[in-house]
């Protein structure tokens, strides 16, 4: 009966989990540093960061699988890892292989039995796009199919909170599209989703909030647009001409990069740079202008201090300053 209620209210996002001052270190390496997070229903929270930034460690602490050094984690007003939390949580973690001699149908049936109110079998199969593979042994699955099965297992219990650690690894384009559709669907029904990914396109397309982790600390957070706005530069791209270009003479140029066929330059003052560039080199071909995307923002924000001082550019690291 409670559920009917919550479905009605599901437009409003509620805080499902809150993390305060979370610290975790392994032997002598700081893996998570003062992490503050709120996970909300009806939202996809994407955690980005390069390898070793602490994404998986963060998820493991939220699942109660790792002890934390200090800080507080409250999920559904309970301790992470408690039975009450586990029953309302789904987790898709990175798994090299599943027990090979069970069929997809059997794997799902088994996981359904773990939950008091499991999701309907057909619905699980449909969400994960496994209709035609139900009788297949997991040993015969491709990388993408294995990911789909892991996704199916993570939603078996009708989770209110869903962790997806690199969900689309190994998936082809259409499988990825249907995974995204399923994620959006679950989100619209009120599920709080925490997503880690290497595909920035995935974060861009799914996330309501993005958190950027670097060496265990959150260095930036915001909506996709806010993250992109951190990088104010614009990129001008054109076919590398046969003659050399004197980049020093181009006005307001931040950096340039000649890589093979194309040359790209970054600028803060698009109009001024364009005028100066085209005045000098009016014959440039295939000229295009693009605002910084998530990828540029990600790379820029992830650069270390040394690289920043080299390019002479200051990046606003709100998270680090705080």
């Amino acid at each position: 009966m409670q559920q009917v209620n919550s479905v009605k209210h599901s437009d409003a996002s509620q805080v499902v989990a809150s993390i305060q001052g979370l610290n975790k270190s392994f032997s002598n390496k700081q893996a998570l540093c003062d992490v503050e997070l709120q996970i909300k229903s009806n939202q996809v929270l994407a955690i980005l960061g390069s390898n070793g930034a602490g994404k998986t460690t963060l998820i493991n602490t939220l699942l109660g699988r790792l002890k934390i050094d200090s800080g507080e984690i409250s999920i559904f007003s309970s301790q992470p890892g408690s039975l009450a939390v586990k029953q309302q949580t789904g987790a898709m973690l990175q798994v090299a292989s599943l027990p090979e001699t069970l069929k997809i149908r059997e794997h799902i049936q088994l996981f359904q039995s773990y939950y008091p109110n499991p999701m309907d079998y057909q619905k699980v199969i449909a969400y994960a796009g496994l209709e035609s593979l139900q009788e297949r042994f997991s040993k015969k699955l491709s990388g993408g199919e294995k990911q789909r099965l892991l996704f199916a297992l993570s939603i078996c219990g009708n989770p209110k909170l869903l962790f997806l650690d690199e969900p689309s690894v190994g998936m082809d384009l259409s499988a990825r599209q249907s995974l995204w559709k399923a994620i959006r669907d679950l989100k619209n029904q009120g599920t709080a989703i925490v997503l880690t990914t290497h595909y920035l396109e995935e974060a861009d397309s799914l996330a309501d909030e993005i958190v950027l982790l670097k060496q265990g600390a959150i260095i930036q957070r915001g909506t996709n647009e806010q993250i992109k706005a951190c990088v104010s530069s614009t990129t001008i791209r054109f076919t590398t001409p046969s003659y050399p270009i004197d980049f020093n003479s181009v006005a307001y140029l931040i950096s340039h990069d000649v890589s093979g066929k194309y040359t790209a330059i970054q600028t803060n003052e698009l109009n001024q740079t364009l005028i100066s560039l085209l005045t000098k080199y009016p014959e440039l071909e295939d000229l295009s202008v693009s605002r910084a995307g998530l990828e540029e923002a990600f790379l820029e924000l992830n650069k270390d201090q040394l690289a920043q001082s080299k390019t002479g550019k200051s990046v606003i690291n709100k998270g680090e300053a705080a």
Binding site: Q2, V16, S18, S74, S77, S78
Partner: peptide, 23 residues
């Protein structure tokens, strides 16, 4: 960031259903 009150979350945890012996 704190515009949603944390009390809302407690209503979610009421949905905790213990497993029946048969299950």
């Amino acid at each position: 960031m704190n515009y949603t009150s944390i009390e809302c979350a407690s209503s979610t945890s009421e949905q905790f259903v213990p497993m029946s012996p048969a299950k």
